[in-house]
Amino acid sequence: MDSTPHGAAVTAAGFGVKGPRGWAFRNIGLNAAPGSLIVVQGPSGSGRTCLLLALTGRMKSAEGTAEVGGLPLPKKRAAVRSVTALAHVPGVAELDPALTVGEHLRERALLQGRFGGSLRALLRPRHERRAEARALVDAALTAAGLDLESLPKGIRTSVRDLERLEALRLSVALALIGGPRLLAVDDTDLKLSDDERAGAWAMLRGLAEAGTTVLAVCSEPPEDGEGVVLVRTGGRREPDVPKDAPGDSPTTADAAAGTVGGDNGNSGDSGDSENPADSAAGADASASKTGEDPANSQHDKQDRTDDDEEGAADALAEAGRA
């Protein structure tokens, strides 16, 4: 396989998406070269999927700047969608459990033949088009590491009978048929065993090394972080403050620490997480000075967390209706 990077470079600064009830994420920054493995880490409800959809042109950003393959977002969202592909995204790009592996592959190859090529390609003889479709499917299956002969019923195996890693590989293979410059994979490590997780990361690393830029959402990054561009969502967030409101504005150091929006997320930024016990103690001490009930202070923190999750959920709902 040609290892020349044909993937898309991805950059972002102060990037954010806002839903009707609050921010899904904000203050995200990254700088990834073509053929990079971009890992988005964060807890459920922290805006991970929203970030994936925004960077692939499926969701409109509300602040900051971003580019994918030199195409600015959100101005060139349609163009970004044409060079990106989604895999394993619940409610957006997911497998139909009632269909077989072969049916999924044939459907995707048919769509690629009808809408993924030029008019001249459609006018070629049928045997040439079929041969090209077979070549695309075979190459995608090989890149995703899915061996059809190892499945219980081969190509006739139903999706509901696939193991979790096999289903992930199939979803990735379907996305690769279109030859995307950026492949975005959601819930990469969801309910996978340690061995399966290692296999999934090996697959995605292989795709990146072959030249395709890969953006993968996960709860835990790969153990070997060499060459990984790490982006974290779910940092501490402050309530929105009007621009003309009195008071000091946050310092640059505060923003870099994630006190306003999510973590910066540049490659190699490991970031020390806050000790929960120290956080609770600090909240109690602050409440004591102001005469506030510590329990109420903790409830306020939980309310802000719930608002963040609601913002991410609302943004996802808007994307689904788009």
Rank of each mutant, 00 (worst) to 15 (best):
V92E: 03
A93N: 05
E94A: 14
L95S: 04
D96P: 06
D96E: 14
E103Y: 05
L105Y: 04
L110A: 15
L110W: 13
L111W: 11
L111M: 08
Q112C: 04
G113C: 05
R114N: 05
F115G: 03
G116Q: 00
L119N: 02
L119P: 03
A121D: 13
A121L: 05
L123P: 01
R124K: 02
R124N: 00
R126E: 15
H127Q: 13
H127V: 05
R129Q: 13
A131W: 03
E132H: 04
E132K: 10
R134A: 09
R134Q: 07
L136R: 15
L136K: 12
D138L: 10
A139P: 01
L141A: 11
T142M: 09
T142I: 12
A144G: 08
L146I: 00
E149G: 07
L151K: 11
L151D: 05
L151Y: 02
G154R: 12
R156F: 06
R156H: 12
S158G: 05
V159N: 07
R160E: 13
R160K: 13
R160L: 12
D161F: 10
D161R: 15
E163P: 00
E163T: 11
E163G: 15
L165K: 03
A167E: 08
L168I: 05
L168S: 05
L168R: 03
R169L: 00
L170H: 01
S171E: 00
L174I: 02
L174P: 01
A175M: 13
L176T: 00
L176H: 04
L176N: 09
L176E: 07
G178V: 03
P180F: 06
R181H: 07
D186G: 06
T188C: 12
T188W: 11
L190Y: 08
K191N: 14
L192N: 02
D195M: 02
R197W: 00
G199S: 07
A200S: 08
W201I: 09
R205W: 02
L207Q: 10
L207K: 11
E209M: 11
T212A: 04
T213W: 09
T213L: 11
L215T: 04
A216H: 09
V217F: 10
P221V: 05
P222G: 01
G225Y: 10
E226Y: 04
V229C: 15
L230Q: 12
L230R: 12
